[in-house]
Design a protein around this nucleic acid. Sequence first.
DNA 1: AGATTTCCTGTAAACGTTTACGAGAACGTT
DNA 2: AACGTTCTCGTAAACGTTTACAGGAAATCT
Lengths: 363, 363
Amino acid sequence: MAENRKSTLVLVAERAGVSIASVSRVLNGLPASVSVTERVQRAAEELGYVADATARSLKVGKTEQIALAVADVGNPVYVAMMHEISRVVTDAGYRLVVSSTGSDPDEQITLLSSLNRGYADGLILSPLRVTEPLIDQLGSSRLPIVVIGSLPADVELDSVRADSAAGMGLAIKHLAKHGRARIAFINGPVDTVPGAARLSGYTSAMHKRGMAMHGDLQVNADDFTFAAGLTATTTLLDQATPDAIVCANDLLAVAALKVMLKRGLKVPEDIALVGMDDTDIAELTTPSITSVNLGSIKRARTAAKLLIRRLADPDAPVKRVVIEPKLTVRESSVVTHDATETKRASAPPSSATAGHAEGGGAR
Amino acid sequence: MAENRKSTLVLVAERAGVSIASVSRVLNGLPASVSVTERVQRAAEELGYVADATARSLKVGKTEQIALAVADVGNPVYVAMMHEISRVVTDAGYRLVVSSTGSDPDEQITLLSSLNRGYADGLILSPLRVTEPLIDQLGSSRLPIVVIGSLPADVELDSVRADSAAGMGLAIKHLAKHGRARIAFINGPVDTVPGAARLSGYTSAMHKRGMAMHGDLQVNADDFTFAAGLTATTTLLDQATPDAIVCANDLLAVAALKVMLKRGLKVPEDIALVGMDDTDIAELTTPSITSVNLGSIKRARTAAKLLIRRLADPDAPVKRVVIEPKLTVRESSVVTHDATETKRASAPPSSATAGHAEGGGAR
DNA sequence: AGATTTCCTGTAAACGTTTACGAGAACGTT
DNA sequence: AACGTTCTCGTAAACGTTTACAGGAAATCT
């Protein structure tokens, strides 16, 4: 059935003995007589005809493609978000083209201008750093953009962001409730959007609870990676003796866990640990890591839906969505009773792990 | 500079006072007089002109897009491969559209036929299961396809695959050399391409070394996920007492590690563990996991380059590349000397971390 | 039965490029 | 000075669709 020759509308038309307009109409479900419909469908079938996407795009001015630009691939949270976005957009009939820019804002700017070449109908952008020129470029884009992350208030774009300050609040509160007093914070670079937000969340949460905040308790990793987390944790533990650590990121948390275990520290007995993003890797480790769920999946889904909505209705009012954080409590932050006797005890109770909340559905 | 009106060739042409042909020529670097070149460039600049990708594609018959279809997203190894592919294709001037199909071959078939709509110039496909109809569809595709994975010999397609049988060999050899005799194998579904290959690798490697092979030592997880790994490992440890476990996958290995630690088993002392794929997560855990590096990154890069080569030269001879495996030895498979006294042992030789040497059986 | 509406389908233009072709202009050659 | 060659640039066709428009047949109404 499928000929390996490219088959066009005119081919089908002459085989069916009708005009190309009729073929197009039939194939697009517009009204036509039964006889024509029949003949066209048969001809199309026999030739294995499939409409050319490029020609259609040129004519109707839509590519049915959505571009996704994430700054920091490699971070599992962005991978999870990408999957979710992929699902939503393909369900809506779009293809997803991914442009993994580096964290460099300049790359994103050139990407934005290349967007104007019209290879996609819209863009979902998750910038790590937001600079002036980037904002300018964002504002002057010809086609719809949805931003995942914080944005200055005067930028008229749909956006969805996490409330990482509130998330830090949850973490601190949880740790305080379990009697931790010297809560350290391992952050990523503070000149990034998430880095800045999480730092301010930490300081304000600590302040609000009237907890001591030595500068020694706060270190910044060079970036949000595992490797950077290793050295950051080492630095921290060399300069302070916290009874809890909260990390800006699950990768950093995993690194922290590794260093602590290496040093013979018991988690959570000696030091409690809380990560952030609630990615799959948080439940892989032993002990599994309590993590602040910043709603990555939900953010991704919302962003995708926002873009699709705007594509359907360009004049819809601008929406700014904030996703509320939750805390997923795992083993790394609370001391279980039988942990004091022996470690072997805690074999899985009935099912698998004890995790809650909607993690990234690994599939 | 960038007007938010769409600007076309004719706009530029009339502003520069030349024909659209001249504009096109100048912008494509074809010879033109200095005066014309100058005027066109200035006009284009002033209007913020960018050529429309769709129109260009229609005319020249190339989309400058490459499609990537991976069956099992969520598996970190495919994520890593995707990044590598993304890098290579963008460097070559292509965009990457990702279509995350499920593991269902039918999905891949519909994807293949949709490929004929011509939204991409070529496809990189990594199928989890290879069925007859899929192969048929592969063969009759109009545009170039590179397959990551094994393929029947009579399929005339560029492909690159891992030698997972050899990889299993490396793992078994390594474990045997360190005195392990009862080596268990946790596989994924055997009706998948990697599952089948790894199983045969296991049996032949065990056989070759004349090692005992009880059926009890081999279990199949329902799929290649962490969750499936947990139950599979539980099953295994309930029915046998291996002194080593090799897993078809790092995710499975991490799951195995988790279950073993939960049961109070010491890794690698009681049971050595080897994973497969050598993904990032293998070094995140404590102990970090020895893993067979099947050259995922290299496979990805090679696949991308093969496709680009074929796009440049459609008549190039078909290439089948096999990437040789290596073994990345980490903590989970070899017992370090001073591990009996204290755990601090395996700290990096020169760098920090060495300080805290607490006595006592930290685990 | 004629007039009007409705339905169907073909003709042709358009989307925004690239590019083959040919007409002049500029140049060098005899 | 006439001719051939090279260079530059404009005209127009083409890529494969969708769709406005109009013409003709069929159906409905008075």
